[in-house]
């Protein structure tokens, strides 16, 4: 059974904008993106929204629904009551292009700052041999669809624009962790995580994990293990001494 739903959608661009009210038909089984498409087709033909797969796998339709960073295509209308006014806004952390579309190029800049996988010397592609138990930890991080909801919700840059230069954000600290935990990587990522990618700015409040549509345990499995590795290197004299005595490679 369909009903007429109440929506507030942010419309505007870098010069200004605001929330506009709409009443749109909602049908059983629909997600928020379906409603946005109906709104586009019937009332606001120039409404800008970025989308692609409608299956929660491309990471394009990231926005904020009732103030919470969500994928438009994975938020079911059945989670709201019929009388509820649903507010849809663009991601706050990134510069606005128009309506629900933001400029996420900050993330691509941060991605380029992380050196790629560095295999051991003398080992050519095709010669890599790894045990499954050694790679499965970092495989969890490969589930990332790069929707950037974790970057959007992270208060380090959401509330403090000035930290953008120093902080890579949870998505890319997770990338550093993925490489650091890779059994063949010799990139030496730990010092860079703290000094170049701003791991120390993270205060592990877990919002990145809460919003991840792939349910990756970003904080517990990537950020905290990296913080512990940094503690090994920089704040633990016992580990430092052990490495010296037993001539271990830290």
């Amino acid at each position: 059974m369909g009903y007429q739903g109440n929506f507030r959608v942010w419309r505007g661009d870098a010069d200004g904008g605001g929330l506009e009210d709409f009443t749109v038909e909602v049908n059983e089984g629909e997600v928020v993106l379906d409603v946005i498409h109906r709104l586009q087709a019937t009332q606001a033909g120039d409404l800008a929204v970025r989308w692609n797969c409608k299956a929660g796998k491309c990471g394009s339709c990231s926005a904020e629904i009732n103030g919470r960073p969500r994928l438009l295509c994975m938020t079911r209308m059945s989670t709201f009551t019929e009388g509820e006014t649903i507010t849809i806004t663009p991601m706050r952390t990134f510069p606005i292009i128009r309506d629900l579309v933001t400029d996420v190029s900050f993330n691509y800049t941060k991605a380029r700052e992380i050196p790629s996988f560095k295999p051991p010397k003398g080992l050519a592609p095709g010669e890599y041999r790894m045990q499954q138990v050694d790679v499965e930890r970092s495989q969890e991080f490969r589930k990332c669809i790069e929707c950037f909801l974790c970057q959007d919700t992270c208060h380090v840059i959401r509330d403090h624009e000035e930290n953008k230069e120093a902080f890579a954000g949870p998505r890319f600290l997770m990338r550093v962790a993925e490489l650091e935990m890779h059994p063949l990587d010799e990139g030496g990522r730990v010092d860079a995580a703290q000094e170049q990618h701003g791991l120390g700015l993270c205060n592990i409040t877990k919002c990145c994990s809460e919003v991840c549509p792939e349910h990756i345990k970003i904080t517990d499995n990537a950020l905290i293990p990296m913080k512990e590795r940094v503690a090994d290197r920089k704040y633990d004299p016992i580990v430092w001494l052990g490495n010296k005595i037993f001539r271990r490679q830290p």
Partner: peptide, 17 residues
């Protein structure tokens, strides 16, 4: 810092840990 996810914190500056 922050009080909840996607709720703005009241502090003007932030240096984390």
């Amino acid at each position: 810092s922050p009080p909840a996810c996607a709720v703005a914190e009241p502090h003007k500056t932030y240096t984390g840990e």
